[in-house]
Amino acid sequence: MNGLGAFLERQRELRGAWLKALYGVLAALVLLNLFVGPHEPHFGLDAYPGFWALFGLVVGVLMVVIMKRMVQPVIVRREDHYGDV
């Protein structure tokens, strides 16, 4: 394992710190959104601060939950379902 690999290995231990940094950045972005907005809103709603943050979070959560918990159980089959693996 080379230098970069060792570096990445070390960062795993600093997991908590990285997570805190992420939360901080996200908060800062939302704060910034209060002051900076689009001059031409696409949907009208997205002029509101925090819209895109909410959009990303909600859409992401819904997507994963619906697909993984509701849709996949219905359509999933064995790997070898068609007999060509």
Binding site: L19, L22, V25, L26, L29, W52, A53, G56, G60
Partner: peptide, 12 residues
């Protein structure tokens, strides 16, 4: 950044 950041949060 907002969109991506919060999608990443959703993943986490």
């Amino acid at each position: 950044l907002l969109l991506l950041g919060f999608s990443g949060l959703a993943f986490y």
